[in-house]
Write a protein that binds this DNA or RNA. Structure first.
Length: 577
RNA sequence: CGGGGAGUAGCGCAGUCUGGUUAGCGCGCUUGCUUCGGGAGCAAGAGGUCGGGAGUUCAAAUCUCCUCUCCCCGACCA
């Protein structure tokens, strides 16, 4: 490709609207342009990268035995009503009516559609295992789209769905996808990790997220320093502290009510009473679809709402409003306590071993001290309810945990029979018995993967593409357009490389070398061949690696073989690790 | 949906508080000459319904009201 014929509008300045580095650089490198909030156009350079990622995904999915399909993005409401997600999915689901006033939606994901195909086509156990995937534009009307392609409303996603006869089959399919995902992100040249994750709205029993490690990641990853436990912070289990014999050998102090005027926060109360937050038990009231629930947790810990939801087996829990808190405790927010509460009370494991602690008194401007379980407080259930935090120990081996940030680029789920049950997707087994198909689903954010690569690989001059997903592998820069020998040599190199199957961009624009170098760095082409006067007089050209600035000068006739070797080297480097 | 901020030339911004010539600056763009190894110089140009609507006024980018859009911080998303 010739630069002058390529639509590649690079910008010197960061766009005002961009906040994160990948968004700024994609914009400046002329890869994307915004149409509306969370909705982007891909310009030629951006699309080239997207296609590269897609191709890697496609190859690995095919290798893993999945078959490509393409499902509709406009979907009838009826199908979503069958799984009840028409009601459950909420505002993220973009809904509209067609000319006949039929309710439709733009697919945010395709479990319904694919399961509909499965229930029509799969009749026998002989037709499984089966894995179907597609690469397609999704739309999720996010509350707050941001960070360019990182969290758009419209985005390109690879979604795959596996169909098996039983759990054991699903286990195998899941594992195959897990391995395919590892290969995909490795081939993209990314540093990533797979973590245990929550299943969320998609549903199902188990799930892993594939995280690209990056400072700017929105996800917090917890991983053990010594064993292989790794999890999303939302999912991470807290280690249950050893249950000290409560009050044994030690006399419990008598319960006492204290005046705490206007002390509504843990900080205020603990400072006022001169105790540590670890000696206070917070009582948080939640509204759930099973009624009001009180949770007890140590003062320095936070409730993990998804754990609570899972424990209760309910849809969504939310911190109770002032009115509800008043109704349940008889006191305004900030003075709730477990003593004498009539609502269901669940305590975090961290509370189990506490003695003589502080709680609210369910009375304005008052707290109790020397509160004790059993004697003063009735707890219905103990459970792991808290958000894991820095300093916590590994729930598996007890060693220390480290916290890091990541970008979620892939997510795989064991769905089980959630969708086959509601949509009645069944087959006949060897014994002629009708059984539900066991499913898994597997997603990759294609645009987000490209963005994540930028987050991971960039410097102050711009993007540093890993070779496998670079929009071009090589850029040829003649330093002076007025010099015929330079231009001829550059043209010759360009033609030879193109002929050898190298993806090469020839910057034959009539601009100064500085401009060309800056643009080449900005758009992140891995190899740059500079054809300059001094070198050329001796029959030499220069090859420079974007990633480390390493420069080699070689005889111009050796260009093609050298470039091919360098490309090979970098392609393979991404596969190792 | 709360809370904060912003819409002025393709991009980045000043001007708005305190209304008053022809609305400026940098980058980019066009033409010519010179230049050519890290965003070149000189000269001449083109380009603006000041987000939209209504109002106040002799006069509105500037004041008032309404509205649209975008960005940032907040309740799990590839």
């Amino acid at each position: 490709m010739r630069y002058s014929q390529l639509m590649l509008p690079t910008l010197k300045e960061d766009p005002a609207e961009a906040e994160v580095i990948s968004h700024k650089l994609m914009f400046r490198a002329g890869m994307i342009r915004k149409l509306a909030a969370g909705i982007y156009s891909y310009l030629p350079l951006g699309l080239r990268v997207i296609r590269k990622v897609e191709e890697i995904v496609r190859e690995e999915m095919n290798r893993a035995g999945a078959q490509e399909v393409l499902l509709p993005c406009v979907q009838p409401a009826e199908l979503w009503m069958e799984t009840h997600r028409w009601e459950e999915y909420g505002k993220d689901l973009l809904r509209f009516k067609d000319r006949h006033s039929r309710d439709c939606c733009f697919g945010p994901t395709h479990e319904e559609v694919i399961t509909d195909i499965a229930r029509r086509e799969i009749r026998s156990y002989r037709q499984m295992p089966l894995n179907l995937y597609q690469i397609q534009t999704k739309f999720r009307d996010e509350i707050r789209p941001r960070f360019g392609l990182m969290r758009g409303r419209e985005f390109i996603m690879k979604d795959a769905y596996s169909f098996d006869t039983d759990e054991a089959g699903l286990e195998k399919s899941y594992h195959k996808m897990y391995e395919a995902y590892e290969r995909i992100f490795k081939r993209c040249g990314l540093t990533f990790t797979a973590v245990e994750a929550e299943t969320g709205l998609i549903g199902g029993s188990a799930s892993h997220e594939f995280m690209v490690m990056a400072e700017t990641g929105e996800e917090i990853i917890v991983s053990c320093q010594s064993c292989d436990y790794t999890a999303n912070v939302q999912k991470a289990e807290a280690k249950r502290t050893r249950l000290r014999a409560r009050g044994s050998g030690k006399t419990l102090k008598p319960l006492k009510k204290m005046e705490t005027p206007d002390m509504k926060t843990v900080e205020a109360v603990t400072q006022f009473l001169k105790v540590r937050p670890q000696n206070l038990v917070k009582t948080l009231i939640f509204e759930t679809d099973q009624g009001v629930v009180a949770t007890l947790i140590r003062g320095d810990h936070e409730i993990n709402e998804s754990k609570l939801e899972k424990l209760l087996g309910c849809g969504e829990v939310k911190l109770a409003s002032d009115d509800v808190v008043y109704g349940a405790t008889g006191a305004p927010k900030g003075f709730a306590g477990p003593i004498g509460l009539s609502v269901k009370t669940i305590a975090d494991y961290s509370v189990e071993s506490m003695v003589d602690f502080v709680t609210g008194a369910n009375e304005e401007d008052a707290h109790y001290i020397n509160v004790n379980l059993d004697r003063d407080v009735k707890v219905d259930q103990f459970a792991d309810l808290r958000m894991i935090k820095e300093g916590d120990r590994c729930p598996r081996c007890g060693k220390s945990l480290s916290f890091s940030r990541g970008i979620e680029v892939g997510h795989i789920f064991k769905l089980g029979t959630k969708y086959s049950k509601t949509l009645k997707a069944t087959y006949l087994d060897e014994n002629g018995r009708e059984r539900e198909i066991v499913m898994g689903c597997y997603g990759i954010g294609v645009g987000r993967t490209a963005a994540a690569a930028i987050e991971q690989y960039h410097d102050e001059d711009g993007i540093i593409w890993p070779m496998p997903i670079a929009p071009f592998q090589v850029i040829v820069v003649p330093v002076n357009n007025k010099s015929e020998p330079l231009m001829e040599t550059a043209e010759g190199i360009y033609r030879l490389l193109s002929g050898s199957g190298v993806e090469v961009l020839l910057d034959e624009r009539d601009s100064t070398p500085g401009v060309k170098f800056k643009d080449a760095d900005l758009i992140g082409i891995p190899l740059r061949i500079t054809v300059g006067e001094k070198n050329l007089k001796r029959g030499l050209v220069e090859i420079r690696r974007r990633k480390n600035g390493e420069t080699i000068v070689i005889g111009k006739e050796k260009t093609t073989e050298t470039v091919l070797a360098l490309i090979n080297e970098e392609m393979e480097a991404s596969l190792r690790v």
